[in-house]
Design a protein around this nucleic acid. Structure first.
Lengths: 256, 256
DNA sequence: GTTCATCGGTTCATTATATACACCGACGTT
DNA sequence: AACGTCGGTGTATATAATGAACCGATGAAC
């Protein structure tokens, strides 16, 4: 299999909670031989992607990722543009708002703003969202290029919760419904008790490049609240698209 | 060379100014065969490190780097901590202040704040600074582990300007002088007309992990100005070290 | 309107390189 | 003292990376 991809996938074992990982641990989790993992880590360390804690000998993300993020942000200031939009969205809806962008085969969370109320949904920063199991993923897929759409539908859909769509038919239904309505809804498909509503952000070619989403406790789901969220999302997503230099799809129309 | 490293080094061809690169161009610049470069880019794209502009077919940095940067920033909020320190430093000195961290074999610029005055030094965001040719690099090297120091001294030192130290002796002199004085000075070693002064940031083990620096037009270099900058740098670097959970080296004492 | 150069991308035989097993000393527990 | 685990090393083997030749498309030159 491809060595470069295997090496880069090692970085996905670092999460919000798992900040440092030991060599043997990483080898075990990834299923790759210890010697190989070490060589990959050393290679990535030479380039600044990871670094080794000199005391614990464990590995963590390196400063190189900060540099690259600055470069990308300088080329297109996604975070700077989306943060105020997310803040407004969280404030207007009183719920947790987050933004994700297509990153490889998945969706990468690149911004979260929580409302001030106590009972709110927590979303891990830097989370990888599966395209088939989240409102954001469905929204993006619904407005992707046909080939990209087919790639997602053709996958083996792993269940994250009991509500995750696992058959092609179920997913296809959710996607086409999202395309019709202009937004996607996911009822506890990724995490129990969490209900998500998402709207796509479009690129210059009229296809989705990411999504804005609002996550609410499932107990608060209800028609009025949902309408209010969708209205807030509509202006937010439109602002995000245009301020990022995108062009909304002609087929994107919101219908409740 | 190792494949993973070769692939990751491709990312270093993206800069402040070069936001997108075509396949043939990247192959030419890196000296790697076109087919190989394409495979590497495809692998990295699968992981979200790069993405292809669907119109121009050219490649750019992907959203995955934003995600990883968020994760690292969440684990240790380097940027958030250093930005206000840099702002104060730039304001106090009236000059461009910047911060860099060790990233692989080099130093990665991760923050710049410019003063309000018109005649100021411009530093590219996300720049890679060679350890031997910048004040920051000298400052870091002077307070690194002996092995690390030796690795830098043993390198083939490429000249960036006519003032860059290219002999081991010259570099050794600058490093030991920096160790004695507690800060490093670089007079147009990296860019003509730019004079840099840098002080190390220390990690928990008492060795340097990065540096804060002030860059001034060479024409403004002078003893009074320099003294003022060093004083501002001293408090700034101390604040950076402690607020990042580091411990200053016992050997770090400022002497003019 | 033809020519030519260059683009992104593909193919496939060759071989260089990644891999995995066995092994090391160090450390902490039992 | 025996055992398990850690990070790390050496090396024969086999797999995966490589690069030259080639493709169709595009655009500039004349």
């Amino acid at each position: 299999m491809r060595t470069v991809e295997k090496a880069l996938r090692l970085l996905d074992f670092f999460t919000d909670k798992v900040v440092e990982i030991g060599l043997s641990d990483l080898a075990r989790q990834s299923g790759i031989d210890k010697a190989t993992v070490l060589r990959m880590l050393s290679d990535m360390a030479e380039c600044g992607f990871v670094e080794q804690n000199p005391e614990t000998k464990r590995w963590r993300l390196g400063a190189g990722v900060l540099r690259l993020a600055r470069l990308r942000e300088h080329a297109q200031p996604v975070t700077r543009v989306l943060t105020p939009i997310l803040e407004k969205l969280a404030q207007e809806t009183g719920e947790t708002a987050h933004a994700s962008l297509i990153s490889g085969r998945d969706l990468a969370n690149i911004g979260v703003v929580e409302p001030s109320r106590a009972n709110r949904v927590y979303i891990e920063p830097g989370l990888v969202l599966p395209l088939h199991a989240t409102a954001s993923g469905i929204a993006v897929t619904a407005f992707s290029r046909p080939e990209q759409q087919e790639r997602v539908l053709a996958r083996t859909l792993t269940a994250v919760t009991g509500m995750t769509p696992t058959s092609r038919a179920a997913l296809e239904g959710m996607v086409s419904r999202a395309r019709d309505r202009g937004f996607a809804v996911a009822d506890q498909t990724y995490e129990a008790e969490v209900y998500g509503i998402a709207m796509p952000i479009f690129g210059p070619d009229g296809y989705a490049t990411g999504a804005l989403a609002v996550a609410i406790p499932a107990s608060r789901a209800g028609e009025d609240h949902e309408r209010q969220i969708i209205a807030a999302l509509e202006t937010a997503a439109h602002a995000a698209t245009t301020r990022l230099g995108g062009r909304p799809s002609a087929e994107h129309r919101i219908t409740y």
